[in-house]
Structure formats: structure tokens, C-alpha cells
Computed example of a mutant assay.
Amino acid sequence: MLIALAGLDPDFGTGLTLGALAVIGLGARIVRSMPAVFRVIGVIGTVAMLWVSGLLVIAKLADTFWHGAYDVVHAVTRSIESAGPVVVWVADTAMSAVFGLILGLIIVAIFSGVSHFLERNRTDRVAA
């Protein structure tokens, strides 16, 4: 649904503003609402990417050499099974998203540190 709303871009809304009076109001509302629609799409997309990346990394680490994160997720979801499948899914999803966020922050810190180190070494060579 959000993608369908994104398809109603401001050009479409602007085109509607050139029509009859009833359509002009609809076109103007579409044009005014697009920034909010795109902000919502951005937030939902970011959360979805954190969730999916965390879920995939947890699963692949468990398949290869480290079961720690998978064991934690499994223990928590087993302990709340009596609350129902929706609660289990929300907990699993939230833990996966937090894991994805933490992993992403670690990667950003590593790349920032390496970039800063390389930049400092390059300016040292230029100054020499």
C-alpha cells in the first residue's frame, strides 16, 4: 500500500490540480501529503532492513560457527510461547532488529575508524 501511495507522486497530484474544482483539491492534498508518506516509507523500510539483516546474520552465524545470538533468541521465544504466536513473533522480530542495529553500528564504527586512519596517514604523507 505504501508503494502504491509513492506511485501517486507530486507530478500526478500537480496534474490533478489543473482539472475540475473537486479534482484540484484532491491533487493539492496528494502533493502536500507526499513528504509525510515518504518519511513513513523511510522509517518502515529502515526497520524492515534492520529486522531482516539481523535475522539473516543470526541464522547464518548459527549455521557456521557461533550460536550465541541464536541461542538467546531461541531461549527467549521458548520462554514466552505461552503468550501466543504473535507475542513470540514480535519478540523474535524485535531481537533480530536490535541485533541488526548493533551489528550495523559496529560496522559503521569500523569503517569510520579505518577511513579516519587512512585520511590521517594520507595528510601526513602530503605534509612530509
Rank of each mutant, 00 (worst) to 15 (best):
M34V: 12
T46M: 07
S53P: 02
P35D: 08
G25I: 09
I24Y: 07
G54F: 03
S53W: 14
A48H: 02
S53N: 05
A22S: 15
I44P: 05
T46A: 15
T17Y: 07
G19I: 00
R32P: 00
G27A: 08
R39K: 13
W51C: 01
L26Q: 08
L26T: 12
R32F: 11
M49D: 04
I24S: 13
L18F: 10
M49G: 05
M49T: 10
R32C: 08
V52T: 07
R32A: 15
I30G: 04
V52R: 02
G54K: 02
I30Y: 00
G19P: 00
V40D: 01
A20W: 11
A28G: 12
G25Y: 10
V40I: 15
R39Q: 10
A48G: 12
A28T: 09
V23P: 12
G27S: 03
G42M: 07
G54C: 03
V52Y: 10
L18E: 13
L21R: 13
V52L: 13
P35Q: 07
S53Q: 01
G54I: 04
V47I: 08
S53I: 03
G19H: 00
G54S: 02
M34Q: 15
R39C: 12
W51P: 01
I24M: 09
V52G: 04
A22F: 06
G25H: 13
A20C: 09
M34S: 11
G45Y: 09
G45W: 09
A48F: 03
G45Q: 06
G19R: 05
G42N: 06
A20M: 09
V40S: 01
A48S: 11
A28R: 11
R32M: 10
V31I: 05
